[in-house]
Amino acid sequence: MGSYFNLFFFALLLLVLGILLVALNLILGPRREHSEKLIPYECGLDPSGDARIPFRIRFYLIAVIFLVFDVEIIFLYPWAVIFEELSWFGLIEISVFVVMLLIAYIYAWSEGALKWE
């Protein structure tokens, strides 16, 4: 019985718990249909137009920068695990890698990609 099996068993248990609770709610909860209740909530005003409005490009930009950094961190994890064996050689190698990313980071910063006004 592998450790991963235990993990997925626990995840499944959580999912079953969630579904059971919602099912119980559907059985116990009342049902009083009324068209006014189904309007999306906008502080009492009737919503006009589609709710899926265009949003700021900043969110996309942040996601792109995040992708670069996340891949960097994934590369750093194996290095951290075998740090003892690689010693100074590994530290210098990874420093070159991180410095290259830091240049990109400073460039993004100076271009205003991290600014949010």
């Binding site: 609770l21 119980l24 709610n25 909860g29 009342p30 209740k37 189904l38 309007i39």
Partner: peptide, 8 residues
């Protein structure tokens, strides 16, 4: 558990 489940 005893509240109405609304789907707008």
């Amino acid at each position: 558990l005893t509240k109405e489940d609304l789907v707008p």
